[in-house]
Design a protein around this nucleic acid. Structure first.
Lengths: 137, 137
DNA sequence: CCTTGACTTAGAGTTAACTCTAAGTCTTAG
DNA sequence: CTAAGACTTAGAGTTAACTCTAAGTCAAGG
């Protein structure tokens, strides 16, 4: 069990932002200690970290919202609540996001490869120049 | 050779934004037809697409700027201009970005796997329910 | 010749996503 | 008992990255 500031520290999302996310419905409200103070569980922490990853990979809060709510990913879908959208709708949303993420993954891969190439080239150059040119400008 | 609006169409970056990027120094100024109208080459288009990928994968313009300028990735580094930073500095910058992107890729991979799992689960459920439950809410 | 699409500068407006302030309450540990 | 850290609502301020408007110029095509 973690307080909001502890959760902030662990996840890298500020306490302010955690309350903000809760307010806009992006995060489920955590349980409260004696009905007063937020108590984040490991599961909550995990979920927050997951959202943070989605953000880091360039997804907007709006998209994340649709993704986690309608897609119900990582949230309880088997507890008999009647709030889940239809199966085929969920499949549609998840497929859409999957396609987008796979495209993004390809782009990222390409950039990583390019960067690695460039980097090896530089490093080779640095080695060669040990007896000859010098480096600093 | 492409006009700005053609380039916009191809790359998905608006003409406005192309001029904006040029203005803030993110894009090199393309050659002009009779010194007046921007003419984008295939190389320019390629570079713009590359920048767009960086953006899509969540990099800020500031980071992109540092990445493409100091890292000199995809830009001319072998034409005897004295503007390149030192080799070791470039290596440092590229390494830093590479680490960040690799972390991002790990996160993205994780999300993709999770999504794929969820999706197969849904699809299996959909198949099973062919004789029994029905789908639409 | 006039419309279309390119160009310019300068600056205003917008949207997303925070980020903070005010102004107050409550509770527990020292 | 008081300071620290939790909480509340309501709303103001900030930053990034566009996005658009104004108000004008210029050149080529139908």
């Amino acid at each position: 069990m973690y307080t909001i500031s502890k959760a902030a520290e662990i996840t890298g999302v500020s306490a302010h932002t955690l309350r903000y996310y809760e307010k806009i419905g992006l995060l489920p409200a955590p349980d409260r200690n004696a009905g007063r103070i937020r108590e984040y569980t490991d599961k909550d922490i995990h979920f927050i970290t997951f959202l943070h990853s989605l953000k880091n990979t360039g997804m907007s809060l709006e998209d994340i919202s649709e993704f986690v709510k309608d897609g119900c990913i990582l949230t309880k879908i088997n507890e008999g609540e009647n709030v889940t959208p239809s199966l085929s709708r969920r499949i549609e949303i998840l497929s859409k996001h999957l396609t987008k993420m796979e495209q993004q993954r390809r782009e990222l891969d390409q950039i990583i490869s390019l960067t690695q190439e460039k980097l090896s080239f530089y490093q080779a150059t640095l080695h060669e120049s040990k007896d000859g040119d010098h480096d600093e400008a």
